[in-house]
Nucleic acid binder design. Sequence first.
DNA 1: CGCATACTGAACCATATGGTTCAGTTTATG
DNA 2: CATAAACTGAACCATATGGTTCAGTATGCG
Lengths: 114, 114
Amino acid sequence: MVQYAQALDASFAALSDATRRGVLERLGRADASITDLAETFDMTLTGMKKHVGVLEQAGLVTTEKIGRVRTCKLGPRRLEEAAAWIERFRELWDARFDELDQVVEELKKRSKSR
Amino acid sequence: MVQYAQALDASFAALSDATRRGVLERLGRADASITDLAETFDMTLTGMKKHVGVLEQAGLVTTEKIGRVRTCKLGPRRLEEAAAWIERFRELWDARFDELDQVVEELKKRSKSR
DNA sequence: CGCATACTGAACCATATGGTTCAGTTTATG
DNA sequence: CATAAACTGAACCATATGGTTCAGTATGCG
C-alpha cells in the first residue's frame, strides 16, 4: 500500500508542472529527442533532461539512447492509477454532495415557511 | 489558458502528497476540524493547517471558522479539470499506441519485402 | 583526423515544501 | 475571572524543485 501511495505521489507530482504536461502531449504526437523538447519548450538541454528524468521516474515516459540521441516516448499507461484515484474519490465526493443537496433542500423549505 | 494551467498545477500538486489525499478521503466521509485531522494523521496542528491551506488554495477544500473551531469540508468539484486533463491525454495516448501498432505492421511488411 | 552535435554530470542558485517549536490570540467553560 | 481548548503566525530546518552554467564525454560526418 505504501508503494502504491508513492507511485501516486510520483505521478501527480510529475503532472503538477505545465512543462511536463506539455512534454507528455508533445510525445503523444511523436517521439522526440531531448534537443527537440528543449527547443520546443525554450529551455536548456540540461533543464529538459531533468524534466524527462522526472517523467521517466514516474513511469510516464521511457527513453532509449541510440548513438548520440536519446529518444523519448510515452511509457506504459501509468496514469491509470492516478485516474483511478480521482475517479474513486469523485464517487465519494458526489455522495457527499448529494447529502449536502438534501440539506439545501431542507433550508429552502424552511425559508419559504418563514 | 495560463490560469487554467496554474489551476492544474495546484490541483495535481495538492494530490501529490499522501497525507493530503488522505485528508480528502477523510473529508469525504465527514467534515472535520483541524484538530480532528491533525490527530488522525499524527501531526501538529500547525502542520495540518498547512496541508489544509494547500488543499484550500487548490480549491479542493473549503473551511469556515465558527467560534474556536475551523471546520473543513470538501470544496467545489475542482478535480473535474484534473480528471479531464488525464482523460484527454489518455485518448491521445491510446491513439499514439494504435499508431505505433500500425508502424510496427508497416515495418514487418518492409522487412519481408527486403 | 578534426570538428560539430547531443547528451551528461557537477555545481550552484533561488524558491518551495513538509515538517517542527514557540509564543501568541480568541473563545468556551467552570 | 481563570484556565483550557483551538487555532494562528513567525521563525527555523532539511530537503526537493526548477532552473542555470560550465566542463566534460561520446558519436557522427566530411
